Simulated scan of single mutants.
Amino acid sequence: MVQLMTRGQVHRALAAVVMLALVPAISCTTQEDAARSEQNDSAIRPSTRLRFKTVRSILEDSKGNYWFGSWNEGVARFDGDRLTYFTVEVGLSHNQVRSIHEDRNGVVWFEGGVGISGFDGKKIITPTNRDYTSRDDWRLSPGDLWFKEDGLSRPTEIEAQPGVYRYDGEAFTYLAYPVPQGTAHATTGIARGKSGRVWFATYEAVFGYDGQSFTVIDDESIGLNESTGRLHVRTVFEDSRGRLWIGNNGIGVILHDGHTATQFTQEKGLGFLGPHGGRTVPQPGDVTDGSPTLHRVFSIGEDRAGNIWFGTVESGAWRYDGRSLRNYTAKDGLTSKDILGIYTDRHGDLWLTGNGVFKFNGTSFDRIH
């Protein structure tokens, strides 16, 4: 049985990276197994680092364990004392773990680059109760979990249409987006809003579902075209004030207040020519001298003080306090130029992930891995 720790014990253990231990094989999935393994010196190699090269997602579960999802090396659980690794070799659906969730029964679920898998406290499990016959039966409940389609970048043959899975604690029901069949939407992010609305990001559009109807945000609805740059959405986030932030790989951040959309990145003079959806002609105020920009945004989150954080590719992270933007980079302890995940844990502490794991101390970042 995993022993629960106090907040201070967990945080001291996480901050003291020298205490982390690697488990090269995932034969240990319970505390009893781990204890037996510790008797065999060959089963454990002490290490000061989580062995993942790139971390994409984090979850602190209800037991106080921290889960780290990697770019392509599986998932790891840190119980305050040691790390345990899970990969496709023991049933994980895919070694890329894009997001991690816990259901009301304490099962931890992993959204893989391909498929969905979970951890029931003892072993990796694969969901078998799937419903593909109710594609238009959209519903919304507070305890629902949502997952992207099973395909790496498009629906599988059995899914047929772009959409998402709704897990109600019993079954995974596949639901189709309200778009014409054959439209090439692929899910890139999912976020639940303040009022319970769920937002689904795809490259071409963002869909919001409130339990009754859909809000669709696409190029046409917010006036984007070739000259302004088009949507290429990589993340979506609704903050505590109900504002919707859309992060793009190309035209940066768009802020939607429920009525109008503002090209936030461009208004702040932090745009540039993006590889996807970027403008073909620089505009006045664009940063073109190699300075950090806000045009490739892959993660968005909010800290306990209500500041909005943006994770970019190549330019570290940016914090917006409602008035001004500040860029955090290596000089602030954030040694990863690419920030792929932003997570606020159960205690309100802010974590950033990319080529490392970083925790904000209120002024700068401490590298945990």
Results as ranks from 00 to 15, higher is better:
6 T>D: 10
14 L>E: 01
15 A>H: 14
16 A>R: 13
17 V>D: 13
17 V>A: 14
19 M>H: 14
23 V>T: 14
24 P>I: 07
25 A>F: 11
32 E>K: 14
38 E>C: 09
41 D>F: 12
42 S>A: 10
46 P>W: 07
51 R>S: 12
57 S>W: 01
60 E>K: 08
60 E>C: 07
66 Y>K: 04
69 G>A: 07
70 S>A: 15
72 N>D: 15
76 A>P: 00
86 F>D: 00
91 G>C: 01
91 G>D: 01
97 V>E: 00
99 S>T: 11
100 I>D: 00
101 H>R: 11
102 E>W: 05
108 V>T: 05
111 E>M: 12
118 G>A: 12
119 F>T: 02
121 G>V: 04
122 K>I: 08
123 K>I: 03
123 K>F: 06
125 I>W: 03
127 P>Y: 06
129 N>C: 09
131 D>E: 13
131 D>Q: 12
139 R>Q: 13
141 S>C: 05
144 D>F: 03
146 W>T: 02
148 K>R: 15
150 D>T: 06
151 G>D: 09
155 P>Q: 05
160 A>S: 15
167 Y>W: 08
167 Y>G: 01
168 D>H: 05
170 E>S: 14
174 Y>T: 04
175 L>T: 01
176 A>R: 02
178 P>M: 03
178 P>L: 05
179 V>L: 12
187 T>R: 04
190 I>G: 01
194 K>Y: 09
204 E>A: 15
206 V>F: 10
207 F>P: 00
208 G>R: 01
211 G>S: 03
213 S>E: 12
222 I>L: 09
223 G>N: 07
224 L>K: 09
225 N>E: 09
227 S>I: 15
231 L>V: 11
236 V>D: 04
242 G>C: 08
243 R>D: 14
243 R>F: 14
248 N>I: 05
252 G>S: 10
256 H>A: 06
259 H>S: 12
262 T>Q: 15
265 T>C: 08
272 F>R: 10
273 L>F: 08
278 G>W: 01
278 G>L: 05
281 V>T: 15
284 P>W: 11
286 D>A: 11
286 D>R: 07
289 D>N: 09
291 S>F: 09
301 G>D: 03
301 G>K: 04
302 E>T: 03
315 S>M: 06
316 G>M: 03
323 R>L: 13
323 R>Y: 10
325 L>T: 11
326 R>S: 13
328 Y>E: 04
328 Y>T: 05
333 G>P: 02
337 K>C: 06
339 I>P: 00
345 D>E: 07
345 D>C: 05
349 D>F: 08
353 T>P: 07
354 G>T: 05
357 V>P: 00
360 F>L: 07
